[in-house]
Design a protein around this nucleic acid. Sequence first.
DNA 1: GTCTATACCAGGATAGAC
DNA 2: GTCTATCCTGGTATAGAC
Lengths: 232, 232
Amino acid sequence: MEKDLKFDAFKDVLSLTMEDMSRELFQGNRETIKIKKEGVAVKNLVKILNAALNLSNEKGFAAMSLRDLSAAAGLSMGALYTYFTSKEELLHMIQRQSNVVAQVLLDQIKGIDNPRMKLRRVIQAHLYLSEVMQQWFYFAYMEAKNLAKEEQKKAIESELLTEKILIDIMKEGQEKGVFKAANIELTGAVIKAMLQDWYLKRWKYARRKVTVEKYAAFLVDLIESYLTAPQS
Amino acid sequence: MEKDLKFDAFKDVLSLTMEDMSRELFQGNRETIKIKKEGVAVKNLVKILNAALNLSNEKGFAAMSLRDLSAAAGLSMGALYTYFTSKEELLHMIQRQSNVVAQVLLDQIKGIDNPRMKLRRVIQAHLYLSEVMQQWFYFAYMEAKNLAKEEQKKAIESELLTEKILIDIMKEGQEKGVFKAANIELTGAVIKAMLQDWYLKRWKYARRKVTVEKYAAFLVDLIESYLTAPQS
DNA sequence: GTCTATACCAGGATAGAC
DNA sequence: GTCTATCCTGGTATAGAC
């Protein structure tokens, strides 16, 4: 039987450092980025993205001026504009890059048969992923309202997709008789809410010295206990 | 034995319409508001607050210009500035007003003895309150990061206070042997997260036609089932 | 108490030197 | 490829007429 995911193992498998993200972002935006040498571009994108995520997660993207960003990234205004053509485009680049990551979840449950184990895995993978990519997840959540209508729709679909994954697993579990009858749509919604809380309220869990693995174990326990309890 | 809270009953007891909120806000800010006649002031504050909450919940307070606000409220820029002395002060006025409401929770559990019922009541009261005051809760959550350091601290304390109420009830329940041994600190945190999801993701629950009472019943069931399940 | 007109500045954006 | 200097829009804020 498959084993639980460990955070360290998970982290090592994925390359999601700021440099990896910058390189991917560079390759996905070759037309809009005026810099041609990958080495130069990636080096500066690391600085820009770090600064942009820090500043806007602290006080909001709208409240971050490009002069702030320029100072924090150690690049002139002119240099910044060789990486994007407007502030809004910077927003969209970051947002798109955050989305790319989402399908990691699906990879994590490939080839697993037992619905109970599948559910554990998805919860663990989601939490571990958001632990590594905390800034990106927080940004995507908080700045979604600033996107254009069309991109907002994508964000919503992405949220509902995660829920659908959860719901499908629970449905399968019900059919196989492992899980009790319960409102799995609502269960999916609140699981999602609890997963999001992990990256939205970092300060709280850090202060209480709760690790991701501990939080993951707690969530799994809570949900399994609910889904396998005698009918109320 | 005490009965469950019904939403309609709850709603009728509290006077929390926009006019009530405006009147309270007026009385709490008599020095900064230049208008003296309560009737005039309240009438305009209703317009201002409605417009401000709508606009900033849609695209963020920072992104809402005072020209936008002026147009949406149907008042000139000059008139706006007789109600606050700066945009930042408007933010603080709204934020403070949102906080006032929080202690309604404590009122709801006065005189109840049974921890299980207490827990139900707090969950119901929190959800019903946030249902009536949706815009205010959403604003307070999303704009917390734009506050001055000191007010941010208050927002954090307020969040932790809600959790403490939950945790204390659960502790009492454990001592009385009604609830099993469980990590009640983490349980408190995720209950809070699920309560918040109700006003943060209105669109989701509206789309699925889930009412507050239904959501409340689900949450209570989930939590009670966890706290009374056999030890895992 | 409310409006219009205007001051003033911060912020986004770019041209052109290096 | 990067910087400095500058443009100019649109934002906050206020003075003064009504």
